[in-house]
């Protein structure tokens, strides 16, 4: 007669086949007791006897104590959104940059910037004295600072920081006082004087770039954004459709990396914390989110 397998029978089988949890966890440098009780509670969560919020609440502080900086997960909110959203950042590897300026070209054609305005520039400098000379290329988009000096000074709140870290301009509100250009330590902003490539490039005025997702159509005389200040926006319109900024995509040396600085596993986060990483004028306290690798 076939004997019915009871729970204790299954346990006996499992004890023989599955390695002992306590012994296994003792080999890891982390707390055994924490692992055991988390596993117990995890089963409760799966069985529906415990909700995920209280699970996180119960273990959040002990996990932080146990794993420190390595533990970055926040408890999910009731509505499902996480507290830390994306924070866009860029890493530029100066060893890989060859100074070809294709980022500038890509930027200009993507954003259709008029003469005198380029959201991205590459500074080229020769350092040292012969024979110890080096040529340094420094590509500079807007740094999208954590504490942007331009946002501080704008009298009409026309420039502000989005939740995803991008510093934007509301060209329909900007009065063109140019205080932000004065205040920017990186020279990342330009005033639109209304010039155009129309003379050398037929139909330049017909289409404008959908900056900040706003289709403005034809570039007319005295029409916004003319008379206001413009700047790099990490190609927000491209990010919205899942593409990288034009300068990142086009870089021939693969020197530019783009991603979420809030995600500790993203390439940019890892590179930003490498010993090669540095930020421009970091002593000013603006907190630039474009990070360079020397």
């Amino acid at each position: 007669m076939l004997k019915q397998m009871l729970e204790k029978d299954w346990d006996r089988v499992a004890d023989g086949m599955v390695p002992n949890a306590k012994e296994e966890l003792d080999q890891s440098p982390y707390s055994t007791q924490l692992g055991m009780s988390m596993a117990d509670d995890a089963r409760k969560v799966v069985a529906g006897n415990m909700d995920i919020q209280s699970f996180h609440k119960k273990y959040h502080s002990s996990l932080l104590g146990e794993f420190g900086d390595l533990f970055t997960q926040e408890p999910p909110k009731k509505d499902g959104s996480s507290t830390k959203g994306v924070k866009w950042g860029m890493v530029i590897d100066l060893q890989k940059c060859v100074g070809c300026d294709s980022c500038t070209v890509a930027c200009k054609s993507e954003n259709r910037t008029p003469p005198g305005i380029s959201y991205n520039v590459v500074l080229e400098e020769e350092v040292g004295e012969f024979p110890n000379v080096a040529k340094v290329n420094l590509p500079m988009p807007c740094m999208h600072c954590d504490n942007p000096p331009c946002v501080q000074v704008c009298p009409v709140k026309a420039t502000f920081k989005l939740e995803n870290g991008i510093v934007t301009i509301d060209n329909d509100r900007c009065i063109g006082c140019r205080y932000c250009i004065i205040a920017c330590p990186y020279g990342a902003r330009s005033y639109d004087f209304g010039e155009s490539y129309e003379d050398e490039m037929l139909s330049f005025n017909d289409v404008t770039s959908p900056e900040y997702g706003i289709e403005r159509g034809e570039r007319g005389t005295r029409k916004t954004p003319i008379g206001t200040v413009r700047k790099c926006n990490f190609c927000l319109h491209r990010l919205e459709r899942g593409e990288e900024p034009a300068c990142v995509e086009t870089c021939i040396g693969d020197a530019r990396f783009f991603g979420d600085l809030n995600d500790p596993n993203s390439t940019v986060s890892k590179l930003a914390n490498s010993p090669r990483a540095f930020r421009l004028k970091s002593d000013l306290g603006a907190g630039p989110n474009v990070i360079y690798l020397k």
């Binding site: 009298p155 009409v156 709140k157 509100r173 009065i175 205080y179």
Partner: peptide
């Protein structure tokens, strides 16, 4: 005269950025 958009000068009264000295 110096404003790029002089016709929007009233914005400076309407939108007051309290951390801006100019405002």
């Amino acid at each position: 005269m110096d404003l790029g958009r002089p016709e929007r000068f009233m914005n400076a009264m309407v939108f007051w950025n309290v951390i801006s000295i100019l405002a």
